[in-house]
């Protein structure tokens, strides 16, 4: 559970995080998106009580990050942007240190559990310096979970991983979700956000928008139906535009892109009107804006505020 009010972090003149108010309920996978330097990592650091806010408050798992930082740290797991393992020490010892620092009841058992789950058990005695990026990342994820935290912060968990390793990590995140943990995930991979997250927040110093990917799509692009015609003509466009439930019609790649309120109810009438106007209808498909379109619109569009460096 995460709740922030007006959370702000300044580094000198630079406002990295500006007045972020956000609520992430227990058990949700929340995706945190935004361009480089948007303040995602800074927000994760604020929420994991690593740095203090300049203004505003944040409550994580019921604990205030400023007044009860120790309880916050105890109940959250953090995958930092860079794994930061001790390269000269073995995988097992790396985890054991953390199991002890987090006062895990049976450190060896927890270490064994997560090394096995993440398929690193066979290589537990090896120095981490020799591990691939993917293995280090998995190890760092294991380290973040040893104490079974209620809330998990994952800062770019799949960045730099090959497709197979990235999938392993994603599947693991899905599994964490089924265990009822709150997951706060930052990523530049919009596909991943779309697949994993219940809701996403798009950020650029301040929070630009928060909602489910689906709702953001609707909000920004409405619901559109793509009607492919064999004989597209302007009269067809006019026929569609004349219907009372149609908000707008565009022509895109030889098809009509019709913006309407309730596709399920309105499509039959739309098709009938088009056929009545002499159109030869080939396909009728829902036109989904991708989360990438949404992101581009939010980050570059009018709603976006200039990020990062203030005056």
């Amino acid at each position: 559970m995460i709740k922030t009010t007006n959370l702000t972090k300044r580094f000198g003149e630079n406002t990295a995080v500006r007045a972020v108010s956000l609520e992430v309920p227990r058990g949700e996978v929340f995706g945190f998106l935004g361009p480089n330097g948007a303040g995602k990592t800074t927000t994760v650091r604020l929420l994991s009580a690593l740095i203090g806010p300049s203004e505003g408050t944040a409550v994580v798992n019921g604990f205030d990050v400023v007044r009860e930082p120790m309880q916050v740290r105890r109940t959250v797991g953090v995958l930092t942007e860079t794994p930061g393992m001790y390269d000269r020490l073995s995988a097992e010892y790396n985890l054991l240190i953390y199991a002890r620092l987090y006062e895990v009841e049976q450190p060896e058992k927890a270490v064994q559990k997560y090394l096995s789950v993440l398929e690193l058990w066979d290589r537990r005695k090896e120095a981490v310096g020799g591990f691939s990026k993917g293995m280090k990342q998995k190890l760092a994820i294991a380290r973040a979970l040893l104490h079974e935290p209620q809330t998990v912060f994952l800062d770019e968990p799949t960045s730099g991983l090959d497709p197979v390793a990235a999938r392993t990590v994603r599947e693991f995140i899905e599994q964490l979700k089924t265990e009822g943990r709150t997951i706060f995930l930052t990523t530049h991979n919009l596909d991943e956000a779309e697949r994993l997250c219940d809701r996403v927040g798009v950020m650029r110093a301040s929070l630009i928008a928060v909602d489910s990917p689906e709702a953001l799509r609707r909000r920004l692009f409405g619901l559109k139906v793509r009607v492919q015609l064999a004989n597209l003509a302007d009269s067809h466009r006019q026929a569609a535009a004349g219907l009372p439930f149609v908000h707008g019609v565009e022509v895109e790649n030889g098809a009509l892109l019709v913006d309407l309120a309730e596709p399920e109810r309105n499509n039959p009438a739309l098709v009938a009107a088009l056929v009545g106007a002499g159109a030869q209808v080939q396909y009728v498909q829902p036109s989904e804006a991708s989360l990438e379109d949404v992101y581009m619109q939010l980050v570059n569009g009018g709603e976006a505020q200039p990020a990062g460096r203030g005056k």
């Binding site: 740290r73 930061g84 620092l101």
Partner: peptide, 14 residues
């Protein structure tokens, strides 16, 4: 330099 300080500081140690 190895960035291992951040996870350490995220742990519940004073």
């Amino acid at each position: 330099r190895d960035r291992s300080l951040e996870p350490l500081l995220a742990a519940p140690i004073t």
